[in-house]
Each structure stands twice: as C-alpha cells, then as structure tokens.
Computed example of a mutant assay.
Amino acid sequence: MLDEFPADEHRFAAILHPNIWYGHGRSEVHRLLARHVRAGLVLVPPEFGWRATLIASDYLIGDHGSVTTYGAVLGIPTLLGSFPAREVAPGSLVDVVGSRAPRLAEHEPIGPRLAAAERAAASFTDLSGRLTSRPGEAAGAVRRVCYELLELPEPEEEPPVPPDDLSGLPAPAACLPTASRARTEVEPGGGLRVVRHPVDLPRSTADGALVVAAEHPGRSLREAADVLVLTTGDWGEHVHDWLRDALDARPGSLLAAAVQGDACLVRTRSGRTARISPRVPGAGRPMCFAAAVHGWLAAGRSIDELGPETSVNGVRVQLS
C-alpha cells in the first residue's frame, strides 16, 4: 500500500491485535515496522486511538479479527487480506463479513479493488443490528458474567470505562515519508504538482528525485540525496551554514533545504536562497515544497522564474 499510492494523497494506519504487541513486545514491534513508519505508516498503539482511526478510515483491509467486523458494521468499504474460514464460527457475524467482503490476492494491486469494496459495502447495512442484542450495555453484561464465573459479588458502582483519546497517535506532519522519490510536473496554470513515493520499502519501485530528511538513519540514502532536508531543530542564522555545507558535501545536488515551521528555506548551488511558505498557515508540506523547487530547477528553470507566488499540489505558496 505504501509503495502503490502517492504519499501526499493517502494516509495508512495499522491497527495490530494487542496480542502482537504483548507477544513480541513494543520494542520488537517498532523495530520490525521501523522502515514502514519512516515510509509514512501510522502505527496505532494498542491502548488508545484505534476507534478514532477506524471511524476516520475511508477503506479497511483486514482479516477475521473484531476490528474488521466493526469496520464493516460502520459501513466502511472492506477488503480481506486474509480470512482463515476454518477458524471462524459458522453463522457468526465475522463469518457473514467474510462471505460478503472481497478478497485480496497476495501482492495484488489494491487500487483496482477499491471499487469492489465500495460495492460490497452496500451489503453491510443490515450488520449493525446483528452486532449485539444489548447495544450500549456490553461492559455491564460482560462484567456480570465474569463475576458470576468467579463466584464473587458484583460491585454496585458502574463499570469504569476509560476515555478513548488520541494518545500515542503521531502528529499529521509525522505521517509522511522521510525518504522519497519525487516527480514534479508543471501544471497548465503554472502550478507545480509533486508525486512522492517512499523508498524505505523492500520492493520500492519509485522513481524521481531522491528527497531525504537529514535525520534519516540511512547513511547511503542521505549521501545519495538529490535534496537533503533539515527537518528538526531551530538553527536560527546557522541554518545558512548548514545549507551551504550540505551542498558542498553533495556535488551532484541542485538544492538543499531546511524546514522552518510550515515553511521551507532552500538554497541553490549558485547560492540563491528563497523561503517558500503557504499562504494559509499549516496548509502545506515543507518537504513537498523542496521537491517542487528541485523539479523546477531540474527542468532548466531558475527560482526567479517561479515568481512571488505559485501553487504546490493545489496549495497557494509565496516565495520570498
């Protein structure tokens, strides 16, 4: 998924079963998925945020787990990446979802299957009434049974239900690849469109200019970067020294850049510097701005030809 879809147009989140977290341990889960997180994957923690993530989703790819069933009940177009039917109770709600949601074959492109998921979602309308016969009473009913099995008196107070907030979910800006291949196109109206795909993935097929954050752990990617981008820290006036040194260390680079809030400061090999910022604060993606300027320069144009104002992926930006 991360390789197939443009990084700036889609967002992907993984909701893992709690047993994965507790069976492998947090450190191992983060180690196994580190490159995917650097490629833009949102790794949802097991305690909080999974409900909000599910509600916000436009599509769901799941298995025979409960989250997949909840998503189908919500009417989310659902694809099944795995569904071991022999492990599912016949006639259960999970079994019904398995009989209606389309399957994904291994390594099959996902984009063409989304329409099938949307068509199948129309058949999920009757599932909400079958999810539970006691809507809103699950916590109390389960607790009552547990205390009966333990042969203990049930407490008189209401069962505690912790709030489900967004703790542990990363900020939106952190959900973008730190190393990507970027292709820049000049649109008919003069604006720029940047299409980025992450390069951290094992089977990455991305092409275009290599745009890498200076904090990326991959030394080979940093050294080969067409555009190296400083994305952390407030360097003040020292940022100009960093930009100059980054270009000196990479004779093949046309550009170096540094993120400053929601803006981007760029320096060309000729020493020309410019600041690109969105007209609406928070609307843009600074690494995209750097990629756009690189694409413009690679086409044989100068920064001055961009003018004081243009657009990047539909976001109006100003140059100063």
Score class of each variant (00 low, 15 high):
P18H: 14
N19C: 03
I20T: 15
E28A: 13
V37F: 11
R38W: 13
L41G: 10
P45W: 12
G49K: 13
S57D: 06
T68E: 04
T68G: 14
V73E: 02
I76P: 06
G81C: 06
G81W: 15
P84N: 01
R86V: 03
P90V: 08
V94E: 04
E108I: 01
P109F: 03
G111H: 01
A117E: 06
R119N: 01
T125E: 14
R130W: 11
S133Y: 15
A138R: 07
A139L: 14
A139Q: 13
C146K: 06
Y147F: 14
L150I: 04
E157M: 07
V161M: 04
P162W: 13
P162Q: 07
S167F: 11
P172V: 08
A173P: 00
L176Y: 14
P177I: 00
A179F: 03
R181Q: 01
E185K: 01
G189V: 08
A206S: 08
D207K: 03
L210I: 01
A213S: 10
P217S: 08
L228A: 05
G233E: 07
V239H: 08
L243A: 08
A249D: 09
P251E: 13
A256Y: 03
A257L: 07
Q260W: 08
A263K: 10
C264F: 04
C264R: 10
L265N: 05
R269F: 02
S270A: 12
S270V: 02
G271K: 00
A274Q: 00
S277Q: 11
P286M: 11
A291D: 03
H294Q: 07
A299P: 00
G300P: 00
E305D: 08
V312M: 08
